[in-house]
Design a protein around this nucleic acid. Structure first.
Lengths: 267, 267
DNA sequence: ATACTAAGTATTAAAATATAATACTTTCAG
DNA sequence: CTGAAAGTATTATATTTTAATACTTAGTAT
């Protein structure tokens, strides 16, 4: 039916995943017909798949409204993820120290396609809930974490990325101009950090430093968000950046042959 | 094939979920044969299901070792969960305040079957990574959070729970005696909090207070973990408990007709 | 170096499974 | 109280999964 199928592709499973992915921040609980609409599957398929997910404990079902919701199992998967991600174990202790030291919210982000994804979040000041939640994906170019990771790529690749990766506005101040984004990335490549204001939320200052892998490329970034009411860029650079950098460097694995490896093509 | 099947059960999907659940803290990356062993599925099925999950972005695959790992998508599911859980949104801001006020690690837990599951974790002091990670499940009776939630059930149900729910030792000090656990639960019912030492980790003091739902039952608990090197029980009760309670009460929805609703049978 | 073993990958015929249509039941609004 | 919409259950059909097997690659021991 689908073009994607070879004989190693189990389409029923793929459809089931489609049901799971129908849930997001905007769609927290869905009726059968909601699922039909959001997945594009027909009513029968949706019925059987949702029922299976319910029986298997992946979806809770409100006995009165009959609406489905993500179950605790979704957090158990996150639990497994945390153990599988080698960066998390190395990073978290130092990240906690940093957040204590700074008294401000710090985050760990990784690249995921042309987005960043927040892996860990240590909120200190009360911040807008939506801003950074674990698992949130944002276009890499719109974020300081993303820019600082992109900045560790070879120049040619940086250029290509700035030209092609996706953009999206979040505030009236979000920079969408690729020329300007290119300058921000080049600046980050020179400075080893990235800083920005009101890109995701108005009145938010963000600064990020890369965690560098053994091949010289960034595998993750740590980022600090503060309120523009309490900080300006100058104070951020003076009071936050040094600790942020120290932490990032302390986490970064020792560079082995960075100059050589930098030219090795992907994977 | 399987006894569970009615016509609304898609067994391919269930098998796919089995693959996902093969990953945990002990099994962070699995080869095809590892998956065969852990799921009990045959090689062909495992091959097709794992391949499908890979193609769908649910499993990363190391191109050299051919081993599968949880992908970022697992955290995206956690993201969706957080928005769907009505407790999280109400709780998190106050939980952040509390953690700032106390300067100690605080957690949010919910009941999940006869276990508790950690929903949120705000680490302050550097703590043993394994202890409380988001998504970790622990037998409810072994934890202060669990006991304090159980304590809000009607007496008869409390008794039944203490008799039947699962137990597991984590340290030599873990209490496994149901009589003693019963006393701890009754104590929690009287006090409105629960306290324990070295139950999960040696040298850890834990205290928990329940978040009470509109029906008088506990829907969640907030818990604080501290080191026995810095605290004793007395100091915990004096310095931590008041703030913990205030926060729990502030979060608890207004009780509506608790006396009546308490007698309404389940669901 | 070479052969051997185990793991990973690909192909296919056979049949079990998921499907989609449809009928039945419940819920809610007017 | 009535009607429409959503949820649930059933069944014959055929599409999809299956399981056996063959092929390829990687790692190990000789």
């Amino acid at each position: 039916m689908n073009a994607k199928q070879n004989t190693l592709f189990v389409s029923s499973l793929a459809k089931g995943l489609k049901i799971l992915r129908a849930f997001d921040d905007q769609h927290t609980d869905l009726s059968l017909m909601d699922l039909v609409e959001r997945t594009g599957l027909d009513k029968s398929a949706t019925q059987r798949l949702a029922n299976t997910l319910h029986v298997e404990g992946m979806l809770d079902k409100d006995p009165v409204t009959r609406r489905y919701r993500p179950s605790h199992a979704w957090l158990e998967l996150a639990f497994a993820y945390y153990w599988a991600d080698p960066i998390v174990g190395r990073t978290l202790p130092k990240l906690i120290e940093l957040s204590q030291q700074l008294g401000e919210t710090v985050n760990l982000a990784e690249l995921s396609g042309d987005h960043i994804i927040y892996i860990n979040r240590l909120p200190c000041k009360r911040t807008h809930f939506a801003a950074t939640v674990v698992g949130r994906k944002l276009p890499a170019l719109m974020t300081t974490s993303g820019r600082v990771m992109i900045a560790t790529c070879p120049e040619e690749e940086r250029k290509r990325i700035v030209e092609t990766w996706s953009l999206r506005a979040f505030t009236p101040h979000t920079v969408l101009d690729r020329e300007e984004l290119g300058r921000a990335v080049e600046q980050a490549a020179r400075d080893g950090y990235a800083i920005a204001t009101s890109q995701m939320i108005i009145g938010e200052l963000a600064i990020a430093a890369p965690i560098i892998g053994p091949d010289g490329r960034s595998i993750a970034a740590i980022q600090c968000s503060v309120s523009a009411h309490h900080y300006d860029e100058e104070r951020l650079l003076k009071e936050i950046l040094p600790a942020l950098r120290d932490t990032a460097n302390a986490i970064s694995p020792t560079m082995r042959l960075p100059a050589i490896r930098e030219f090795t093509p992907g994977l």
